[in-house]
Design a protein around this nucleic acid. Structure first.
Lengths: 305, 305
DNA sequence: AACTCCCCAAGGAGATTCCTATGCTTTCGC
DNA sequence: GCGAAAGCATAGGAATCTCCTTGGGGAGTT
């Protein structure tokens, strides 16, 4: 009989390409994992891995199985959370994924709002960056999240756009802010971009890449930093310009670099924020509360999609 | 640890409002179901049923849990079905290795044939060059492949020759095509050879090296290119001659360099194509299908071994 | 009050899980 | 090449889990 335990062992093995590594991760001895995987292969009646010298290699049947296994485990994981949070709306923890830049909008206020409505709960806002959050969603470690997306399609996920924020060009030089910035001008600009660690998957970067490519240009940045705050600061010192969401600009410029200004791109470009959760998931009351509050706040400081 | 078995017992109990009835349905004794449900309540740390005189009544927490339990069980059920249907070739992926030059024979047609026979499957033909494919076989990333070989012995591999294709000398100069080319003449020719990256291990090169060495000559090429197409094109411009499989010549000359002709070597030399897989491996149905189709096609455009 | 239905508890047989130790094959570094 | 290392399989035994049977108790029913 198929069991979750077998599926867990299977997935760990699939991801590591190794029984030993899987056993390590799961905290078991190698033969135990080996036994579970073999039992799974037996109940399904098909080989899932080829044993080859060093390590194991998934067969195409393993590829077929994987998404189902993930879904089963995620459902079990969510079951646990749902029950916990059903108890907890009076006394437990509400956990919700949110991209780091959310602090530029209304992070603290969201928490305050939830706490006012449910005085007994503990609130956790998880996540540094949209991509990290998405990974945690996929693995079922998070139930739902509000993140920046570049596509409304994501394998196995439901994406509900909530709001969008315009990307604006910021500069300390008023000369460059007299008219909207085209792709051609942007390509020539000396850019300071944040989120270096996520550079290949950061939503602002992706939008800009698309923007430039369509006009036949290639994106190139002059300075790479991690924090949006740092980027704005450097722009303030005249070391270059940058492109950030308008919400970030309005929030940060007055306190970090008052003489910096901003102007639209032409055509206007947007960062889209969306609620994301596993497709078909039943959302817990706690998640629904968070979604409602977060959506309301984000909408109050941005424009509708 | 949460298990599917517990969830199954929970659901049956939830639906019947009775442990006895659930046990009946599941084919267990009543205390067994009772134990599973109790274990589930313990791992979740919440009560799922109130025991009232006659039968049991789900709590609101049980209501919360139910959809997740159903989803987890459904996912497991679907996993089983998906794997079954993949193994019966109704769906799933067929992955097969094949050397790049296969496109000169019947690459696309092979895929079309498999798809016609198994409309639900996805087909992946992996590989740029025979040597790269062999490496993937060795590492177990591929189950079986059709490649060009120069030896029927390969460490740990089973090699089943399928067909051979003659190597022909191609030239834009009709003078040089009046009689079969001997090793002595070939050694003096100004050669344009493809597959530069694989030059030391390319099967055509190896066959030619052998051919020349036996007659006491050393191979030397004038121009090195990557693509067979490029080589044929250059031969068409009179920059030199080349040696390629006859299948490639027949395919490419009419479209790339119509006035180029070809002639045999003396003695005739051959490129041998073979099915290769790890020694002792039991081949999946998918691999067998690919082998059958690929063999049939290759044979239809070449001569038997 | 007796009966019935249905749950819980206890105890034991059998299966499963998980460990350690060991052997075998492949791979890697010298 | 050849020894060392990595990694999976096998074996055997201890612990745990599963599932059974039997028996007890509470709550409706007659």
């Amino acid at each position: 009989m198929l069991s979750l335990h077998q599926l867990r062992c299977f997935l760990a093995t699939y991801e590591h390409g190794s029984l030993t590594a899987a056993a390590d991760e799961l905290g078991y001895a190698q033969p135990s994992v080996s036994e579970q995987v073999r039992a799974l292969e037996k109940t399904l009646g098909v080989p899932l891995f080829r044993r080859v010298g060093r390590g194991v290699v998934p067969t195409t049947l393993a590829d077929t199985l994987r998404p189902y296994a993930e879904q089963a485990i995620a459902a079990a994981e969510e079951a646990r959370r749902a029950v916990q949070s059903a108890v907890s709306l009076e006394s437990g923890t509400i956990r919700f994924g949110m991209f780091g830049a959310a602090r530029l909008y209304a992070g603290a206020q969201i928490v305050a709002d939830v706490l006012e409505r449910y005085p007994g709960v503990r609130v956790e806002l998880i996540g540094q960056h949209s991509n990290e959050v998405q990974e945690q969603l996929r693995r079922g470690h998070l139930e739902a999240a509000m993140i920046a997306v570049t596509s409304l399609e994501s394998e196995g996920m439901t994406v509900i756009p909530v709001a969008r924020d315009e990307l604006v060009y910021i500069s300390a030089d008023p000369e460059r802010l007299t008219s909207p910035v085209t792709a051609a001008r942007l390509a020539k600009a000396s850019l300071i971009m944040p989120e270096t660690t996520w550079r290949s998957s950061d939503s602002v970067r992706i939008v800009l890449r698309r923007f430039l490519h369509e006009a036949g240009h290639n994106p190139e940045t002059r300075i790479e930093v991690e924090e949006v705050e740092t980027a704005v600061d450097l722009v303030g010192r005249g070391l270059g310009d940058s492109v950030i969401p308008r919400g970030g600009a309005e929030q940060l410029i007055p306190q970090l670099a008052p003489h910096v200004g901003y102007v639209s791109l032409r055509p206007k470009q947007y960062d889209v924020m969306a609620i994301v959760h596993r497709r078909g998931a039943v959302l817990s009351p706690a998640a629904q509360v968070m979604i409602e509050v977060a959506t309301r706040h984000i909408r109050s400081v941005t424009e509708p999609v």
